[in-house]
Amino acid sequence: MNCSKEQILLYAITDRHWLGNRPLTEVVEESLRGGATMIQLREKNLDEAAFLQEAKALRDLCKKYSVPFIINDNISIAAEVDADGVHVGQSDMAASKAREILGKDKIIGVTAKTIEQAIAAEQMGADYLGVGAVFPTSSKEDALPITHEMLRKICETVSIPVAAIGGITKDNIPQLKGNGISGIATISAIYGMPNIEESTRELKKIITQTVL
């Protein structure tokens, strides 16, 4: 397994929507200073050349902070920039194929909403799961909430770390206590905040207490 529980404790996912006029590297560095333990570059609307440039910049930044750098969906760019890994959804490339392309030492994350999907992902070599949406979210319109009972069952069924995702805020994190998660993955609770570094620090404190 290439991913520890500690690495997905506070998993920050980028979203250009929250940037305003600020460079992505600047806001990501603020989250790293605040204690983000993993960074995912998520770009749905950038052309390949711009995506590649951003991926290289964030890869170097994450190396500086010794934090894993993951790319969402785009296996070819993950391979080209030598990212630490890739995250794939159920409609993307299978984890086993991603592993074949990226090699045994890279982190492969998979989105799962059911026990069956979670078991299949682990069997195909996933290193961690992103499970949700655990609360209603506006970041992904197709992300239907799953029950916290389902989240708990998935955590009990697999041996790899699970990050809860979807609609997470500093106020609702404590509701996830006792479900067996190793951490949370979030966009707006970090990058949608006026003070990213401070918000990240506060989230890390709350999630650390929640997963104990």
Rank of each mutant, 00 (worst) to 15 (best):
G109H: 02
E122F: 12
F135P: 07
S138C: 00
R99E: 08
I119R: 15
F135N: 05
F135I: 05
Y128E: 09
F135L: 06
A112P: 01
D105V: 00
L129I: 04
Q117W: 02
G125Q: 08
G103T: 06
E141P: 04
A126M: 10
E100S: 13
T111V: 12
A143Q: 07
Y128S: 03
E100V: 00
S138R: 14
K140C: 03
A133I: 01
A133V: 01
P136Q: 06
A133W: 03
H148E: 11
A126L: 07
I146A: 06
M150V: 14
I101G: 08
D105Y: 02
G130F: 03
G109K: 03
A133N: 03
V110P: 00
A143K: 05
P136Y: 12
F135T: 06
A98D: 12
A98P: 12
E116C: 00
A143T: 02
L144C: 03
A112Q: 02
E116G: 01
Y128G: 05
A126Y: 07
V134Q: 12
T137W: 03
K106Y: 08
T137K: 10
H148T: 04
L129C: 09
A143W: 05
S139T: 15
S139K: 03
A120S: 14
G103F: 04
V110R: 15
G130E: 01
I115D: 06
P136H: 07
T137G: 07
T114V: 11
K113H: 11
M124H: 14
D127L: 09
A120Y: 04
A98V: 02
Y128P: 06
K97Y: 14
G132R: 07
L144K: 15
K97C: 00
K97N: 01
K140Q: 02
V110C: 13
G125A: 07
G132T: 08
L102V: 05
A112Y: 03
V131E: 07
A118T: 09
A112D: 08
A98Y: 09
I119C: 02
I115H: 00
S138A: 13
H148M: 11
K113D: 10
K97P: 00
L102F: 03
G125Y: 07
A118R: 05
K140T: 03
E141W: 00
H148C: 02
A120Q: 15
G109N: 11
A143E: 02
A98T: 10
G132N: 08
F135E: 08
T111N: 07
K106W: 09
Q117G: 13
D127T: 04
V134D: 09
H148F: 08
Q123R: 15
M124S: 14
T114W: 07
E116Q: 15
S138Y: 11
A121R: 12
K104P: 06
P145A: 01
I146P: 06
D105P: 01
A126F: 09
I119M: 13
V110F: 07
A98I: 01
K97V: 15
M124A: 15
S138T: 15
K104H: 10
K113T: 14
M124Y: 05
T137I: 06
E122I: 09
K113A: 09
K106D: 08
D142N: 10
L144Q: 14
I108N: 04
V110K: 15
I146R: 05
K140I: 01
Q123N: 15
Y128H: 13
V110S: 05
Y128I: 03
S139R: 02
